[in-house]
């Protein structure tokens, strides 16, 4: 197997140790960092997402793949930064105010990173002001909000209203998701996109960056 194939396999297998070793060896041998991302890591996370969508993977397996991907990315990211390679986009991700549930948010973050996005993880219980601050100060183009509860999903509405009040609504694409969230609710609150799954969120983010969502 080539180093890129080894990295692909290690990420799919959720083997963080091997992913890191393979990446370090490949970089040492002169494999371009961008090739490792574009041909190894991203296809591996796409495949992990596909397996998740068709119930071959569940949350533990997806988290394992994400951990392996991140262990490799830690080595690759500084090199990419030196070469001036641009991420697919910068996304602020957070669970909305009043809600501490983060597993869905973490899956979305991992899938976005695996797809080449730079993720600004704002954590849980995130106030509207914090999302707005990320857009103002971190050049974030997409905001992705998560909520698990029917009560806290209303914070998505108030956050979008806060973006309008701040005059920033047109400068950012806002995506929403989480167990109780529906397309109807997303439309009602004026979100730009809704996904029922983490892999679906990546597709939305790609569309948002290409201006089709």
């Amino acid at each position: 197997m080539t180093p890129i194939e080894c990295l692909f396999k290690a990420v799919i297998d959720g083997d963080a140790k091997t992913a890191r070793i393979v990446t370090a060896d490949a970089l040492q041998a002169g494999v371009p960092a961008l090739d490792l991302v574009m041909e190894g890591m991203m296809p591996a996370m796409d495949e992990a997402g596909r397996r998740f969508e068709c119930s071959e993977f569940f949350v533990p397996e997806l988290l394992l793949s994400a951990r392996a991907m991140k262990s490799a990315l830690e080595l690759i990211r500084p090199i990419l930064a030196q070469t001036g390679a641009k991420p697919a986009g910068r996304v602020a991700v957070g669970t909305v105010r009043g809600d501490l549930h983060d597993i869905g948010k973490n899956l979305v973050s991992a899938m976005l990173e695996g797809a080449g996005f730079e993720v600004v993880d704002l954590g849980v219980n995130v106030a509207a002001e914090k999302f707005i601050d990320a857009v103002r100060t971190k050049d974030v183009k997409i905001v992705a909000m998560s909520a698990l509860l029917t009560t806290t999903m209303e914070s998505m509405r108030t956050t979008i209203e806060a973006f309008r009040t701040a005059g920033l609504r047109d400068q950012v694409r806002i995506l929403v998701g989480g167990a109780p969230v529906t397309q109807r609710f997303a439309d009602e609150i004026g979100a730009d996109g809704y996904s029922a799954s983490a892999p679906g969120a990546v597709l939305l983010a790609r569309k948002a960056m290409s201006g089709t969502a």
């Binding site: 009043g98 809600d99 501490l100 549930h101 983060d102 849980v124 219980n125 509860l149 009560t151 806290t152």
Partner: peptide, 13 residues
């Protein structure tokens, strides 16, 4: 555990 005045308590992971 974080308690909220008008919504369910949640774990602080």
């Amino acid at each position: 555990v974080e308690f909220f005045p008008d919504s369910p308590a949640a774990m602080v992971e």
